[in-house]
Design a protein around this nucleic acid. Structure first.
Lengths: 106, 106
DNA sequence: TTTACATATTGGCAATTCCCGAAATGTGTG
DNA sequence: CACACATTTCGGGAATTGCCAATATGTAAA
C-alpha cells in the first residue's frame, strides 16, 4: 500500500470533503437508510449514495460528485455501483496507513 | 491542543514542504552543522536555518521563507531566532496529535 | 554609522482549485 | 423505444496557491 501524501493532503484540505469522511464513519447516524429502492437486497458495507451525501453537504450534485471522486482517487473512499446508485464508503485501509505514515515517516 | 486539519492539509499538500518536514527529522543527516557562526553556543534543538533549507530545496529564498511560515502557521514547525538566523525545527507535539486525530476522529 | 548578510514581506503572473449550471452517460421502468 | 432519475463530465468565472524578483527589515561586524 503506497500513500500518495500530496493527493491525500489535497483531498483533505477542504471542509466539505473532511466532513464527508467523518460522516461516513457512522452512516446510520448521519444518513437515511440506504438501498431501500434496490430490487434485490445487497450488502452495501456502510456505503451511502451520492444524493444522500449531497443533501447533507448542501452543495450541487456535480460538486459533491467531484468531491467524492477526489476522495476516491486519493484512495480515501471506495465506491460500488448498484443499479442507478453509486454507494461510497470509507477505505479504512488507506486511512490506517495514513495515520501510520504520519507517525513513522512524516 | 487543537488541530486545524484544513490548514495542516494545505501545508502538507506541496512536495517541497513535505520534504522539509522529512528532512528535519534528521537535521544532522540532511544539513550542514548549524550555529557555527553564532557568537555564543546555543542549544538549537535540531533547528536548521533558512539558508541551509533553501540550499537543499533549490528554490528561491522568498519561496522557502514562505513555505516555512506556512508550516509554522499550521503548527508543524517551531522557529527560534538567534542573531541573524532563524532556526526551524519540527513541532513533534502537533505531529503526534495529527496522527492521533487521523486515527480517532477522521 | 556604514556595510553586509539572513530573513521576511510585497507585488504580480501563471497555474490550480472551488463551485456551479449545462450537457452527457448509465440504468431501470413503462 | 421513450422516459425519468442518479450520477458523471464539461466549460467557465471567481478565488486561491506556486513561485519568483524586488524591496524591506533585522542584526552583527567594520
Amino acid at each position: 500500500m503506497d500513500i500518495d501524501m500530496i493527493e491525500i493532503s489535497k483531498a483533505l484540505s477542504n471542509e466539505t470533503r473532511l466532513n464527508i469522511l467523518k460522516w461516513l464513519r457512522s452512516p446510520e447516524e448521519n444518513f437515511p437508510p440506504q438501498g431501500g429502492c434496490l430490487s434485490e437486497p445487497v450488502d452495501l458495507k456502510g456505503g451511502v449514495c451520492v444524493s444522500s451525501i449531497q443533501a447533507k453537504a448542501n452543495l450541487s450534485p456535480s460538486t459533491v460528485s467531484n468531491y467524492l471522486d477526489t476522495l476516491q482517487r486519493a484512495g480515501l473512499l471506495l465506491s460500488e455501483r448498484h443499479g442507478k446508485w453509486t454507494y461510497y464508503r470509507r477505505n479504512e485501509e488507506t486511512l490506517g496507513c495514513l495515520a501510520e505514515y504520519i507517525k513513522t515517516e512524516l
